[in-house]
Amino acid sequence: MKSILSLIAGTVAALLAATASAQSPVADFPSKPVTIVTPFAAGSGPDAVLRLISDKLGRLWNQRVLVDNKPGGGGFIAIEQVRRAAPDGYTLLQLDSEHIAALPHLYKSRNFVTLEHFDPVASLFRTPFFVAVPTDSKWKNMVDLIASAKEKPGQVSYGSWGVGSPGHLGGQQLEALTGTQMQHVPYREVSQLFANVGSGEVQWSFASIPSSQGIYKAGKLRYIAIAASKRIPQMPDVPTMAEAGGPASLEVNSFVSLLTPKGVSPAIKARINADVAKVIADPEIRARFDTFAFEPLAWSPEEIQRNAEAKSKVYGELVRRGNISLE
């Protein structure tokens, strides 16, 4: 009798386990195509990397992973599309740290806090920024640049790829740390920005490798510092901010992550995080990252949240100091 009861109990337990597995939201995820919406334009560095990651995820999941480019509106076109999507893990959003941490300060009247509507689910990469000047600039290092800014308050110009961008807020931070005042010149087109830095129409700007390499390789730009605490292998001869005579605490970078609308199950978010981390570790992905000087990240959602909150604190102070608004 005992053996029969044990057999029955074992069979019931197995059936319950199978039923739970079948009902688990992650058991068959994804069972249909997944769409990743991005505010970055097709052909940009973040877009190029996202397409490679999407291809790898599609193979891992045996489902199509589609990239939907929705540039414009300061990121809000992409943000609103995903905010309206079902919270089931099938619609993801690619954002950089400025969309997450700076938008709430730049669009005060919208009362929009990114992480009140979305959950971070997986990190992709972080990109550092260099200080770029025309090749024939008299500035050889940050000491020269800062000295000129102090000598001519409000006359030294720096460009960026838009109000509230890392290039703009990084310039604001440099001013705050050095007690200088410079003239900010925002551009709509990144290519035009670096063309004008190369020609000397603006005197300097922050620059990433993928966005400025065309002008750099044409011999029209020099990098006099990297706004980071250590040099990078792709540009080993470019000194750190401190080595170039700038403020050692100035680090200008941006990290890119994937987010989901609020309400996605923890199990599905954990599955996406683990699988993205697996894809990021792929040698082909790492090689592509190296080309762009992108630092691979495998942060947990909690780490993404902490880093976003740290940036938000800095950006909030800079926006208030510079009275910056995109309303």
Rank of each mutant, 00 (worst) to 15 (best):
Q213T: 05
G198S: 07
T11Q: 10
K220N: 08
V197W: 09
G58Y: 07
K278S: 09
A9F: 14
I53P: 12
L145V: 13
G154P: 01
L93C: 12
G89I: 01
F129C: 02
V279Q: 01
V82A: 07
D237P: 09
A20N: 13
T135V: 15
Q63M: 06
S205G: 02
A13K: 12
F289R: 00
E317C: 03
F29W: 14
F194R: 02
V190N: 02
E295C: 10
A149G: 05
R188S: 01
S97H: 01
P166G: 00
N62R: 06
S312F: 12
E295V: 13
S44Y: 00
P46G: 05
F206I: 03
M241C: 02
L7R: 15
I4W: 14
S109Y: 11
L326R: 13
S229L: 13
P283Q: 05
P296L: 05
Q23Y: 06
A102D: 04
L258P: 04
V65A: 08
T127H: 06
L297A: 03
A225D: 00
A207S: 04
A78C: 06
A102G: 01
K262F: 07
E189H: 12
V264W: 08
S24F: 13
A78T: 09
P39V: 02
L258F: 11
L103E: 13
S300L: 12
G10D: 05
I209M: 13
I100A: 15
G170C: 03
S44T: 07
V264K: 00
G45C: 04
W61Q: 05
G245T: 02
K56F: 13
S54C: 14
A42R: 10
A267Q: 15
Q155F: 04
K70I: 04
E284V: 09
L145P: 01
E303H: 07
E251S: 03
G322K: 08
G246H: 03
R51P: 12
S199I: 01
L193Q: 08
P247C: 05
S123Q: 07
S3C: 12
P210T: 01
L103H: 14
R231I: 08
T91M: 10
I100D: 05
H168G: 01
V65L: 09
A9H: 07
R222N: 09
I36P: 00
Q192T: 15
P261W: 04
G170M: 02
F294R: 07
Q203Y: 02
L95D: 04
G167L: 00
P30R: 01
F194Y: 14
P166T: 03
E309V: 14
V163K: 06
A274E: 10
H184A: 03
I8N: 08
A274Y: 00
A42Q: 10
A78Y: 09
F206Y: 09
S249Q: 10
P153H: 02
G45N: 04
A48S: 15
P266M: 06
E80P: 08
G246Y: 04
P247K: 08
R321V: 08
A274I: 07
S211K: 02
A277N: 15
S3M: 11
T180R: 09
V185F: 11
F294K: 07
S229N: 15
A287S: 14
